[in-house]
Design a protein around this nucleic acid. Structure first.
Lengths: 182, 182
DNA sequence: CAAGCTACCGGAGTGGGCTCCGTTTCGCAA
DNA sequence: TTGCGAAACGGAGCCCACTCCGGTAGCTTG
């Protein structure tokens, strides 16, 4: 993890994470300036440790993201590929609506960032699910997992309240149907 | 259109549109502050005429958007429903990559805005295309056109260069496949 | 033509994102 | 222990989106 470099850097890193977590749980979001102030460091320090807003959120939710990634193989052992895929999608949607920021990350990841820390594992996870479905004959071959990740990004745009859950489910239906073998 | 109210309001409206169009064609985008300055009006005036960035872009591209909307019925008379749907999607993608801002509008429309000026026509257009496909037996019934519009929003996220066109085509394939009758 | 009622104007003000660079401090090596 | 170079700090500064309100000038009515 972050056990290298100067000691002040390490403690500041820690303080920033604590402050950010507090800020997000207290009020569900805060300006980066406010987080830096709360952590008792300068804004420059925050940006040095977390160059983008996403990188900060990623650090906060690393655990949850890892859970999401680990879930896929688990689902694949306990369910047929298609059900695993759909179950995983549902879970992504659930995380996105529950935990502030997770969907935002997925969205950001899908958007532009190559070689980002979280992009590759996500693509890899989707690839696993797709491969299983192809092997099984339920999914069509040749689908680029990055394209699927991109599609999942729409979940981010759905307003959680006001029937957002149903809407997400419908959209996921459409996405999955697009992946089925025909 | 805008032929009511005070004369200064009308001319300012016009000046803002001209300035915005220049700014977008010159450099493919500009801050609202810069556009206001270019138009020789205060920033407050810009916001009064165009409360959101989208409303300004919409005003700029109203013509193109209308073309896009009008295209659907035309395609439906000259092509079978499925081809019309796909052709229209392609055109949306093309507009999105070509004309700055159009995809942004679609994205914004799909995102939050109810009763927005451009939202309803888009949904209506998609509904037409879907209905034709359902009648024809090529598309599955019961799909919410708003969900499809939401899905089209991903086109906005695709980087035009670096194989973006191919990517958009692949994603559209997936979306269309999700709509097919099975 | 005068005068007042509004609609409209303009930009100062607020707050957030992000950068840049002069200053500080850590920790290594002599 | 001391000196020094690199690493890290911190906040001033810039740009932007968006709001708010005191001032201004068009239109209408007499």
């Amino acid at each position: 993890m972050s056990t290298s470099g100067r000691s002040d850097a390490r403690t500041n890193h820690e303080r920033l994470l604590v402050a950010a977590r507090q800020a997000f749980t207290d009020s569900g979001g805060a300006s980066l300036t406010a987080i830096a102030k709360r952590a008792g460091v300068g804004i420059g320090t925050l940006y040095r440790h977390f160059p983008t807003r996403e990188s900060l959120i990623v650090a906060l939710y690393r655990h949850d993201i890892q859970e999401l990634i680990d879930l896929a193989p688990a689902l694949l052992t306990s369910h047929p590929p298609l059900a695993a895929l759909r179950g995983w999608f549902d879970e992504v949607a659930r995380y996105g609506q529950l935990k502030y920021g997770v969907a935002e990350i997925i969205h950001a990841a899908a958007g532009g960032g190559l070689d980002d820390e979280y992009y590759t594992p996500f693509v890899h996870t989707i690839a696993q699910l797709l491969d299983a479905g192809v092997a099984d004959g339920s999914l069509k071959p040749g689908v680029d997992p990055e394209d699927v990740l991109l599609q999942l990004g729409v979940l981010w745009r759905i307003n959680p309240d006001n029937g957002g859950q149903a809407r997400a489910a419908r959209v996921l239906d459409l996405i999955v149907d697009g992946l089925l073998r025909r």
